[in-house]
Write a protein that binds this DNA or RNA. Structure first.
Length: 618
RNA sequence: GGGCCCGUAGCCUAGCAUGGAUAGGGCGCCGGUCUUCGGAAUUGGAAAUAAUGAUGUGAACCGGAGGUCCAGGGUUCGAAUCCCUGCGGGUCCGCCA
């Protein structure tokens, strides 16, 4: 039984007690206390009841404490000015916590689609994309571990202007199709071709004409569109190398060009016309277009800004006309016209599928999920809202809980100048470059600590440290906060960082390795763990289920990142003050050793949910 | 102009959804510890080396200093948290994607 189970038990028993005492029914929230002398859990129900009944909260707290019947080892203590605190006996909490680490089942088979990464196939991933990937991948891991059936999608926008830009570079500006040796193709295209072509547009206006004609060719089946596919898939394969390097994985690649060629838009557009959400403009500045009006409660009739064009006056659809059917497909609001084929095998052994227009292979079910989570930065807020409100109108269902835009703030390079990363201008830090730099530094540190180790081993450890450092730094902040990517900061290996967490894990492994035998925990030996720092480590370990639950419900991986750091620093404090292997008292040694075991397992579970590897030795 | 978001020590950040007990961390700073690693020097010894160890160092630990929770008003027994107004910053508002 973990703290999460205690919480549920207390809630149930307290509800019964209130009912039996004839007190009014109120919503009960069992919360964690801020300090150990208040016990571990508390409710402020006496305040709520006091208000209703016009009585002193403390009197009600005393009364409830007297009436409530709790299991052995759990007591209720009234506290001024009206809290009801619950104290779990140290030995019992220790014993129960040390027996097992439990991940709660919250999903009950709910199907969830998570879309993340979705980098345009014309450049390498920069750290802004890295934030998207790390958030999305962590959430996918958390949801999967808590009993949800997840499908992870990486959307490939292979039909837009950005693709036309690089084709201009290859076909008209003389960029070679093969970069110089040692350069990744995605990096070469992003750094040289894409940036170069965008600079040339200013000086050579005729290039823009060329782009226009390429853009038209892309919609059809011809030499240029086939060349575009070849190039974008080559870039995609290199991007995936970076994604996999960051420990991410996907189930499906969805190609925008196939949404177009399968004409998924048509049936949606018909439905939208029928539902009268799509309106034809007879006059005004949008004459000849089909628009959708967002219901915003904007009362000013002169304000036309919340109209969004769906179909241009020349009859072509705008990009939102690709997003809407895809979003509808995710929730099963439109039929599944895709075929699917095997794209490649991933490092974790699973198959990465891709949408396809050709005859499909035997594939798992895609689309039609209970819930769709789209990870995109906050600048897409308005568009995502439009998409959801269109889907709501078409399906006449509220979708607030089913179509979720998980927005996060952008990554910038400097707070003073607020340098936004821009692929077009070539202002960004690539994920691979960042990882290489951190890895370099970690390699020096690892070598210092392991002079006799093989170069290959040192390199593999340094790589894992680099990934942990980057993933941790991108996931630890609130989604609403702008991340300033500071190179010096990202090279830090101490303080609140991924490597610090890995270090404490490795410390635990050292002790376990040297101890040799696995300890057997009994209630009496658990009671020996009575030191303040031991009790607080146990309490933190007992919160595993609660922490996972809240991050799954709030889609907030940051909570788990904080939790790994907190556990690690508590473990390090324990490590300094409670020697395990030197302890002469066999039973105490045994109890401490099982605490080390439990710490290792718990931390291993949580770091895994964050995609951080924990080597046994670093 | 309208929508959304942010404002917490020198810097970064948690807590805000669901109001509650002394606002929790990290970096940096000051002081200390040490089963980290290096080590001037001293003592013993012919030597290998052993003991002591200034001082440095640290993915380690302990302690300390550092706060108008942007401002003002309101609701409440109680506000960092809820409401209103204002200030500062960001972002979105193309027949681009």
């Amino acid at each position: 039984m973990t703290l999460r189970a205690y919480k549920q038990t207390i809630k149930r028993i307290l509800e019964n007690t209130i009912e039996k005492s004839g007190l009014p029914e109120v919503e009960i929230q069992v919360k964690e206390t801020t300090r150990p002398e208040f016990g571990q859990l508390y409710v402020n129900t006496p305040f709520t009841l006091g208000k209703i009944l016009g009585r002193m909260p403390i009197d009600i707290a005393v009364e409830l404490a007297g009436d409530i019947e709790l299991q052995e080892g759990l007591v209720a203590i009234p506290f001024q000015p009206g809290y009801l605190n619950f104290r779990i006996s140290g030995s019992q909490l220790a014993f129960k916590t040390l027996r097992a680490s439990i991940v709660p089942d919250l999903g009950k088979g709910e199907t969830v689609i998570i879309e993340h990464t979705s980098v345009n196939p014309n450049k390498a991933l920069h750290v802004g994309h890295g934030r998207n990937l790390v958030i999305g991948d962590s959430i996918a891991r958390i949801l999967k571990a808590t009993g949800h059936i997840t499908t992870v999608i990486n959307y490939v926008d292979d039909s837009g202007v950005q693709v036309a830009d690089i084709l201009v570079g290859f076909l008209h500006s003389g960029y070679p199709v093969w970069p110089s040796k040692g350069t990744k193709f995605d990096q070469y295209v992003g750094d040289e071709v894409y940036v170069g072509v965008n600079e040339q547009y200013a000086s050579t206006p005729s290039l823009e004409e060329k782009r226009k004609s390429i853009l038209q060719e892309l919609e059809g089946d011809n030499e240029i569109s086939r060349f575009a596919k070849e190039i974008t898939v080559r870039i995609l394969r290199d991007q995936l190398k970076t994604c996999w390097r960051l420990n991410s994985r996907y189930d499906l690649l969805a190609f925008e060009s196939e949404i177009i060629s399968l004409r998924l838009w048509d049936s949606l557009f018909r439905k939208m016309k029928r539902a009268r959400i799509a309106k034809y403009e007879d006059e005004g500045r949008l004459k000849g277009t089909w628009v959708v009006t967002q219901k915003t409660g904007n009362t000013d009739p002169k304000n036309v800004d919340d109209e969004k064009v769906l179909v241009r006056s020349d009859g072509t659809a705008t990009y939102i006309a690709k997003d809407i059917p895809f979003a509808a497909w995710k929730l099963g609001l439109t039929e599944d016209k895709f075929s699917y084929s095997n794209f490649s095998r991933q490092p974790d052994g699973s198959i990465l599928w891709r949408t396809s227009t050709k005859d499909g292979e035997n594939h798992p079910k895609f689309g039609g999920a209970n819930r769709a989570i789209t990870v995109i930065d906050v600048r897409q807020n308005r568009l995502q809202e439009i998409i959801r409100s269109v889907l709501e109108a078409v399906s006449s269902m509220p979708l607030r809980d089913r179509y979720i835009h998980l927005g996060y703030e952008v990554v910038i390079l400097s707070r003073e100048s607020r340098t936004n990363m821009s692929g077009r201008k070539g202002v960004y830090v690539n994920v691979d470059e960042a990882l290489n730099a951190i890895s370099q530094k970690a390699m020096i540190e690892t070598r210092k600590r392991n002079p006799g180790a093989s170069q290959k081993w040192v390199e593999s450890i340094a790589e894992k440290i680099a990934i942990a450092a980057l993933r941790y730094s991108l996931v630890r902040q609130d989604l609403d906060k702008v991340v300033v990517f500071d190179f010096a900061e990202s090279l830090r290996l101490d303080g609140e960082t991924g490597p610090y967490v890995q270090y404490s894990f490795a410390r635990a492994c050292r002790i376990i390795e040297k101890a040799g035998e696995e300890p057997v925990i009994s209630e009496s030996s658990a009671s020996l763990l009575d030191k303040e720092w031991e009790a607080s480590l146990i309490l933190s370990l007992a919160k595993l289920g609660m922490r996972i639950e809240e991050s799954a419900l709030n889609l907030s991986p940051k909570n788990l990142a904080k939790y790994t750091f907190f556990l690690s620093s508590q473990f390090n404090a324990f490590y300094e003050r409670s020697p395990v292997l030197q302890e002469q008292n066999k039973e105490l040694r045994n109890a401490r050793l099982s605490l080390v075991y439990r710490f290792k397992e718990t931390l291993g579970i949580v770091t895994n949910l964050l995609g951080i590897d924990t080597p046994e030795k670093i």
